[in-house]
Design a protein around this nucleic acid. Sequence first.
DNA 1: TAAATGTCGTGAAATTATTCACTTAATCCA
DNA 2: TGGATTAAGTGAATAATTTCACGACATTTA
Lengths: 214, 214
Amino acid sequence: MNQNKIPQATAKRLPLYYRFLNNLHIQGKSRVSSKELSEAIKVDSATIRRDFSYFGALGKKGYGYNVEYLLGFFRKTLDQDENTPVALIGVGNLGTAFLNYNFTKNNNTKIEMAFDADKRKVGKTIGDVQIYHIEDLEDNLENISVAILTVPVSEAQNITDRLINAGISGVLNFTPARITVPEHVRVHHIDLAVELQSLAYFMKHYPLEHEEEQ
Amino acid sequence: MNQNKIPQATAKRLPLYYRFLNNLHIQGKSRVSSKELSEAIKVDSATIRRDFSYFGALGKKGYGYNVEYLLGFFRKTLDQDENTPVALIGVGNLGTAFLNYNFTKNNNTKIEMAFDADKRKVGKTIGDVQIYHIEDLEDNLENISVAILTVPVSEAQNITDRLINAGISGVLNFTPARITVPEHVRVHHIDLAVELQSLAYFMKHYPLEHEEEQ
DNA sequence: TAAATGTCGTGAAATTATTCACTTAATCCA
DNA sequence: TGGATTAAGTGAATAATTTCACGACATTTA
């Protein structure tokens, strides 16, 4: 595989490309240029061409990219065929939002089960996903490698430790806690307060220049 | 001001530093080193020292940083005194999560009002925030510069246009739509599906190396 | 007081990412 | 068919970010 040659910045944009191509395909468009893509997803066209070029020559000069071909290519590259099973930990408002969000639609991730500490929620189903009690975490987490963590910050590290013990190797952490994990576990943090505050900071201090932001 | 000298990557970490220092202060710690900070927030210690150095010499050799002093400094720098008023657009599960999240706690942003298209929600209050009908957007959005966008993707561009017309200059966009805005408006995208998919991709293709992310 | 230790601040190097601008090839159109 | 146009792919330049590694100085300890 050529995975290690692909810059991280590029890898982060792949899902974005994939989804947009999928939309184009659904709309019946058969052809797209890096310029069009650029305008739609707000990434410089040279960056898009460079990103694609890491995978080889996917387009045609004077023509652009064939949507169906490119989509098929990304489908393979992003392992769209193979589903990644996900567990949701913490069924509060944010957790519920995830359960109702239909990820599987144009995405290879699927929330298979959810856990919560509130006994009143246990046994219920939201968006087809069964809710278990957090005490039963270890008994149910089989074949699941990714967890979405939407629990109170005070529980974050403790539950993370249990998740890792139970075999999880990727965590999407929505708590403000900067959790500690072993080397082989990957954590992505999404910190809503930080995002909001950082937006406010940028607005005040970088008033004129304009570039889109992750 | 020295804002323009500060790299964007540094600016993005500032809220993180601020919050962690605040926690230290609450815990009664009076002193901290870049190494300790590094272990807690998973950012390389040299990066932390470099980040701080953009603001001048804030520490003392052989000692570290004085928590209270540093906190006070960041409070000023991040304009913690001055609140940024925020409007929430779309009171679904995700929107509700925001309303219940107590941002103002150690944060200078405050959700002042919310809007939704569902008449049953209008007039209610969640977490002290009044919900208005989306039709009345323009009438109520006064003195608000930031919007959190948690509406269905189909409405995203249309509502964004209205928001900008009503004077908003920053948008925290949680919809998958890559919205188009004029030069003076800043948009930060947080795309939950992309985050999840990109985590899965990194897990599969960058198996051994380990660095914290985002 | 003197030696040992700790830790900042930072030049310089290394790494990573973006952007420019040009060559080349395919398409489009008259 | 042939000239004009379009747009990919990419070498090279530039920019941004991180990291190394060390000098200098404060603190701590004996």
